[in-house]
Amino acid sequence: MSRIVYLNGEWLPEAEAKVSVFDRGFLFADAIYEVTGVIDGKLLEYEGHAARLKRSITELGLNLPISASELLEVHREIIRRNELKEGLIYLQLSRGPADRDFAFPKDPTPTLVLFTQAKSVIENPKLATGLSVALLPDWRWERRDIKTVQLLYPSMAKMQSMEKGADDAWLVEDGFVTEASSATAHIIDKTGRLITRPLSNAILHGITRASVLDLAEKAGIPYDERAFTPDEAMNAAEAFITSATNFVMPVTRIDGEPVGDGKPGTLTLKLRELYIADKIASAI
C-alpha cells in the first residue's frame, strides 16, 4: 500500500506528493530535517526532536508554517494514516521555491514534508555482532550542529566504508573522532568510563546522546565529555553509536581491528536496554 505523505497542509499518496524544481532545498540544500522514532504507534523523544528542529530553524532563519501544537498533531496523524506501529517519521523543511539566486528570497513560502518508514527499530540484526566502522577524514561543512539536508559527504563516507567491508564510517578531524556518518560516536575505556565528544559546531547535538548520558549518570556509569583519538577508540574496552534510528548500537571493529574482545560490550548493551525501556515508558 502506498504511503500517505504530508505536504504543505495536504495528505497525499506518495506518488502524488510533488515539490517544485525551484525549491531551494533541491537547488541549494537550503533545508533541515528531523527523524523521530515510533514504537507501538507512539513517538519517542518527541520533545527533544521538536526543540532541535526549532534551533535549526532559528540558525538558518527559516519559517515553520504551522504551530508547535499543529506539528505534533501532524506527527500523530501521519502515524494513524499509515497505520505505523514501528519505524520512523522523517520531517523536512526547506526555505521553499524561488527563482535560482544565491540570495534568499524576501518572503519565501516554506516547503514542509513528512513521510514515514515502517521498519523494526528494536530488533536490529546488527545487534548480535555489532557494527564495523572505517576511519575516514571529516570533510563536511563546519556547522554540523544544524541538522541540514547537506548529506552528500556523509553518504559518500558511508559508501566508501562499505567498499572497505565496513558498515559505517567514523569521521576524523584534526586527529580526533567527530562522529559517524549519521550518528554520535562513543567509547568506554578499560576503567568503565564512557567518553564522548562535547557539544560544539563540530557535531550534531544528538537527542539520543543526551538521553544516554542522563541514563548513564542515573546508572552510576561515569562519563567524560571530551574528544578522543582513533587510537583511543581502537584500544577501548567498548565502542558504540547513538541515534534516533539505531538507539544504542555496539561498534565491535574499527578499521578491521576488534574493539575489546570483538563482541558487543556489556555496558553498551546495558545502556541500550535502559534507553529502550525508558523511552518506551515516556513515549507519547
Rank of each mutant, 00 (worst) to 15 (best):
Q150P: 05
P137Q: 04
M162H: 12
W170T: 06
L194H: 15
R143F: 06
G192D: 12
T148Y: 03
V172L: 05
T184A: 11
D174G: 00
S155Q: 11
A180H: 07
P154C: 10
L152E: 11
E179A: 05
Q150V: 05
Q160H: 14
L151V: 06
M159I: 14
A169K: 12
K164A: 07
E179Q: 10
E179I: 05
S182W: 03
G175H: 03
Q160P: 13
G192R: 09
D145Q: 08
V172C: 01
V177D: 03
L171N: 07
L152S: 10
D189C: 13
M159W: 14
K158I: 07
T178D: 01
A183W: 06
W141R: 09
A180R: 08
T191V: 14
K147D: 03
W141T: 07
D174N: 12
S181W: 03
S181L: 08
E179R: 05
S161H: 06
A183Y: 04
E173Y: 00
R143I: 08
G175E: 04
A169W: 06
R140I: 00
A183T: 05
K158H: 11
M162W: 13
A166M: 11
K190P: 13
A183L: 02
R193A: 15
I187G: 05
V149Y: 02
R143G: 06
L152M: 11
D168T: 15
A166Y: 01
L135I: 09
S181H: 09
L135A: 10
T148E: 02
D189P: 14
Y153G: 01
